[in-house]
């Protein structure tokens, strides 16, 4: 099934850095989300984009993971040529990841 069924996401930007939080609807689902959604799988959601280092922070108490994507915003919102210069559209793609049913 898709991650979207058990988690939601929000995307933020600071300079040339994007962050995508992935949050379990039910905290019980956090362990399998944490096991399945690695930084490399997040990178794999964006084959058409150039992204630098991806750092992953775990927040088990909140049932959330925060991914920080360096160099992901085409030089930053102020000079990027991108249609979505803030990268606000990015997080939804992570919810398309396939994860194991149980």
């Amino acid at each position: 099934m898709r991650l979207r069924e058990i988690a939601h996401a929000r995307t933020g930007d600071k300079g040339n850095v994007s962050n995508i939080s992935v949050i379990a609807y039910r905290v019980e689902d956090y362990p399998r989300i944490a096991a399945a959604v690695t930084a490399e799988r997040v990178r794999g959601c964006f084959p058409g984009l150039t992204i630098g280092e991806i750092v992953r922070y775990e927040l088990p108490g909140l049932g959330a993971i925060n991914f920080v994507l360096y160099g992901a915003l085409g030089g930053g919102v102020t000079r990027s040529l991108a249609l979505d210069a803030h990268g606000k559209c990015l997080g939804a793609s992570v919810l398309d990841l396939e994860i194991a049913e149980t």
């Binding site: 600071k14 962050n19 939080s21 909140l62 959330a64």
Partner: peptide
């Protein structure tokens, strides 16, 4: 709790 969790991590890098 979901609107609050999303905003807690919005534009945050290291939460600690």
């Amino acid at each position: 709790e979901h609107t609050c969790k999303e905003q807690l991590l919005y534009e945050v890098h290291d939460p600690s």
